[in-house]
């Protein structure tokens, strides 16, 4: 099985520790992963802001880049959703039947990280060790667009040393919403403040989710409030082991060592 990592542009540029953790995790699970360098962006931000025309070349590029692979792993619920739920409609919109067909053939092979680990690799106990108090926010597109269900929680529950506490009103949106943060900043902050409040109610030291975009928003609020709660992508929790534990950095782990 040839497995490709679609890091997503946001992770590649802003949160490299996440795709790096995916590589660590998958290799530990015996799965060789490739990073096709032609990959860029799935186009979600353009599509969801109304720039469908701008997205189409990105759909084409995604299909060309990833069609050779048996499986594509994505450490993001919303980017997975963009590929699986929106690419076909974008191809249809410009009347490109060939592209639509190619998208439809590829889309079922595109998996969000927890789906890939649980469904494709058939593993829930990934050998992770994370001795911290954690709460999990199921991001909207994971939950209601691609329907990952409780897969992330099953993976987290199996982590050794973890103190997993449930988040009140977990299924409510955090208020990120892509360009919504810019277009409706007041509502976005109102929603994010409530999410941050619920996170603090849990007493967790780490907020975990499958999307760094939502985490950047909630984490940005928590950081501004000096709340003393860090955010971390699911992949980074699952990558940590007793031998190579996750190390608390200076607030944001942006050092990507070799």
């Amino acid at each position: 099985m040839r497995v490709a990592l679609f890091a997503t542009c946001f992770n590649d540029t802003m949160w490299p520790s996440t795709p790096k953790a995916v590589v660590t995790l998958l290799e530990r699970l015996g799965c060789a992963v490739e990073f096709p360098r032609a990959q860029t962006c799935c186009g979600q931000m353009f599509t969801n802001t109304g720039y469908a025309t701008e997205s189409v070349p990105l759909v084409r590029s995604f299909v060309e880049t990833f069609t050779p692979y048996d499986a594509v792993v994505v450490p993001s619920g919303s980017c997975t959703g963009s590929v699986r739920e929106q690419h076909a409609a974008l191809a249809r919109r410009v009347g490109d039947a060939g592209l639509e067909r190619a998208v439809s053939e590829l889309a079922p092979r595109v998996h969000e990280l927890s789906e890939f680990v649980v469904d494709v690799l058939g593993v829930t106990e990934v050998g992770a060790y994370f001795p911290h108090r954690v709460t999990y926010h199921p991001t909207c597109h994971s939950l209601r667009m691609i329907r990952v269900g409780d897969r992330p929680l099953r993976l987290l529950r199996a982590v050794r040393g973890i103190d997993l506490v449930s988040l009140p009103a977990a299924e409510e949106c955090c208020g990120f919403g892509g360009t919504f943060v810019m277009k409706n900043p007041d509502v976005s902050v109102a929603m994010g403040s409530d999410k941050a409040r619920h996170v603090r109610e849990t007493g967790a030291e780490v907020l975990v989710a499958g999307d760094n975009s939502c985490l950047a928003h909630v984490g940005g609020l928590l950081s501004r409030h000096r709340a003393g709660v860090r955010t971390l992508h699911l992949a980074e929790v699952l990558a940590a082991t007793e031998d190579a534990p996750w190390r608390p950095g200076d607030g944001v782990d942006h050092e990507v060592g070799s």
Partner: peptide, 25 residues
């Protein structure tokens, strides 16, 4: 209302290129 992360000094793909030089794709 929110802090923002300082961009990392190295992207993921730069790290990958340094550590995985034999990727056929």
């Amino acid at each position: 209302a929110r802090d923002a992360p300082v961009p990392p000094k190295q992207t993921f793909r730069q790290w990958w290129a340094r550590t995985h030089t034999d990727t056929p794709a």
